[in-house]
Each structure stands twice: as structure tokens, then as C-alpha cells.
């Protein structure tokens, strides 16, 4: 176990916990959406830490590819959440 790997992994777990807390406790929709993204970033960080294979060695490419896919999914989900949020706001004005 290396210092860099552990730092990344712990940061990832911390972000996950922070995001989870925000997603459950926040009242505003925007706050919740951002919290979910923070939560997701925590998981992605975990994958980045896993890819580390020691100094001087190329990192494992597979977790990186997974994170890229994960980011695409997260962006689409965020877009859908925002679109639904706007529909909700528009229905307030009617």
C-alpha cells in the first residue's frame, strides 16, 4: 500500500460519505443533484486509486475506462434531473 493510493482512496470514501449526507439531508433540488455528483466523484476517485500500480509503472487502464463511462452516465443523469426540475418549476408558474 502506498501513500498516494491510500490518500486517493480515503478522499474518495470521504467524498462519497459527504455526498450521501448531502443527498439525504438537502432540501433544495439543486443541492441534492450536486450532492449526488459529489457522491459519484467519490466512487470515481476510488477507481482512480485502484488503478495505481506503484511508482514507475503504468496505471491499470481498465478502471480509467470505467470512470470515463461512469462520468458519461453521471452527466446524462444530471441532465435528466435538471430537465425534470425545470418542468417542476414551470408547473409552479402556471
Amino acid at each position: 500500500m502506498l501513500f498516494a493510493e491510500i490518500t486517493y482512496a480515503l478522499t474518495g470514501i470521504g467524498l462519497f460519505a459527504l455526498g450521501l449526507r448531502g443527498a439525504l439531508l438537502r432540501r433544495s433540488l439543486l443541492g441534492r443533484i450536486i450532492a449526488i455528483n459529489v457522491c459519484g466523484a467519490g466512487v470515481f476517485m476510488l477507481f482512480v486509486a485502484i488503478a495505481y500500480r506503484g511508482p514507475g509503472q503504468a496505471p491499470d487502464a481498465l478502471p480509467h475506462a470505467l470512470v470515463l463511462t461512469g462520468i458519461v452516465v453521471a452527466v446524462s443523469a444530471t441532465a435528466l434531473a435538471l430537465a425534470l426540475g425545470r418542468r417542476l418549476r414551470d408547473s409552479d408558474h402556471e
Binding site: I33, L80, A81, S91
Partner: peptide, 14 residues
């Protein structure tokens, strides 16, 4: 329906 869908989405994402 939209409120329920949004809750469905956020819970599902977590």
C-alpha cells in the same frame, strides 16, 4: 408525476 419521478431518480442514482 414529476415530483415522484424526481424522487425516483435521486434515490435510484444513490
Amino acid at each position: 408525476a414529476i415530483e415522484a419521478a424526481l424522487r425516483y431518480l435521486t434515490v435510484g442514482l444513490l
